[in-house]
Nucleic acid binder design. Structure first.
Lengths: 229, 229
DNA sequence: CGTCCACCACGAGAATCGTCGTCATCGTTG
DNA sequence: CAACGATGACGACGATTCTCGTGGTGGACG
């Protein structure tokens, strides 16, 4: 279970963030100031810290400095003031992983949090990686795995999966897939797309995991069945 | 910097709201009555107004009327009494964007404020999203939900709903719908539009929520019904 | 009242999709 | 060289869903 530590002196913001993160399935711990936050981290680690920059007794920077003194890896997302590019620069230089400027939308924050968590699992090598739940595609290495199972794909199958995963959760029209994978720009009656979607499904789908979804009359999309909103 | 104007005669509520909004990173201006609120808006616009309905010298409705006389776009969230469906109806008809019933929780208010502000901006994910009350259409993901209930639509139903939602609260003529959804540019006697409106109503309408409205002799529109389900 | 317009049940035909069998081409191996 | 396996793509076929025209009915309106 992914744990998020929220460090902010404003109770309203803390409550707002706690509601939002718990709604998204994370375990949330709150701290009203930096010292309390560091204390909680000593008692038990977090997968991500969301930290307000502007706090009265210990600023977000100071928190970050002290954390980085003995922990180089726990990701930190800073909440900064709107017109503070100085804040941003200082924070990123100090080892923050991302920032969101106030006022923020909850959905943006959740997406950035999810992106950070995903990135910290894959960023070690710098490879281009596309994912959908347990399906992982390392584009640079031309490797596809579902969980720990490697999946062998032909070149065309690989290209098709890549386009679908680049648009993960979104519908890709038949026209776009024919254009991007087969370089077919004209109205075509070909059934090759259906054939290759069928090949991909045969190799990728397994048990309950069936992410390649048809939108009838429109196109196809990949969606993690577990995460479906 | 997002600015919120709070208009309420009670100092305690004003202070509470000011604290909460400032805690969430907004700039807050307060007015003790409608006249002062309008005066402040003349001096400098706000991104959102939070207005109490029950004020002694100028009610929230009157404030809204006067605002709407020269400003059709600034979002207004009304604070209403608990058992006042008349308040709600009158307010929404007068051009309010949302309402919260007293007593309210701060976190709910912040979420509604964030939702209104998000609606008036580009969505953080870049997804194209259209809404009408509890009906949400993510065009990129080809997802439609009413509250938390997913609604399955065929390709043609989806296109029809999309056109209607693009013109939310406004009448779309039959001619335009036939053109935009079915690519019919000529005078046609077809009844396919009526058939599809019927399909959409069957899937979208639920209990009191029936947003798809006929304008006899003209066309159709989607409007958030007054009563929330 | 009559007329017009909207609504919707129903059914037929068309469209769409998924899979399979097949063939052509290419690269590798013995 | 021939044989073999992998790959790419076409088209047939069956299952399912969608689309839309028809016709009956009810409501709105003058």
């Amino acid at each position: 279970m992914t744990t998020i530590l929220v460090v902010d002196d404003e109770p309203g913001v803390r409550d707002l963030l706690q509601d939002a993160f718990e709604g998204a399935g994370y375990v949330v711990h709150c701290a009203a100031n930096g010292a309390e936050g560091l204390d909680q981290l000593r008692r038990g680690s977090a997968d991500l810290c969301v930290v307000d920059v502007n706090m009265p007794t210990m600023s977000g920077y100071e928190f970050l400095e002290r954390l980085r003194a003995h922990d180089a890896t726990t990701p930190v997302l800073l909440l900064t003031a709107r017109d503070s590019s100085d804040d941003v620069e200082r924070g990123l230089r100090g080892g923050a992983d991302d920032y969101v400027k106030k006022p923020f939308s909850v959905s943006e924050l959740l997406l950035r949090v999810a992106a950070i968590l995903r990135r910290t699992r894959d960023d070690a090598t710098g490879d281009r990686v596309l994912e959908c739940g347990v399906l992982v595609m390392n584009v640079d290495r031309h490797l596809v795995t579902r969980g720990s199972t490697p999946i062998e794909l032909s070149a065309t199958e690989f290209r098709l999966l890549e386009v679908l995963l680049e648009h993960r959760d979104r519908v890709v029209s038949r026209e776009q897939l024919l254009r991007d994978v087969w370089n077919i720009d004209f109205d075509s009656e070909t059934s090759v797309l259906d054939t290759y979607v069928s090949y991909l499904r045969r190799k990728v789908h397994h048990g309950e995991y069936s992410p390649i979804t048809t939108v009838r009359g429109v196109g196809f999309k990949v969606v993690d069945p577990v995460e479906r909103p």
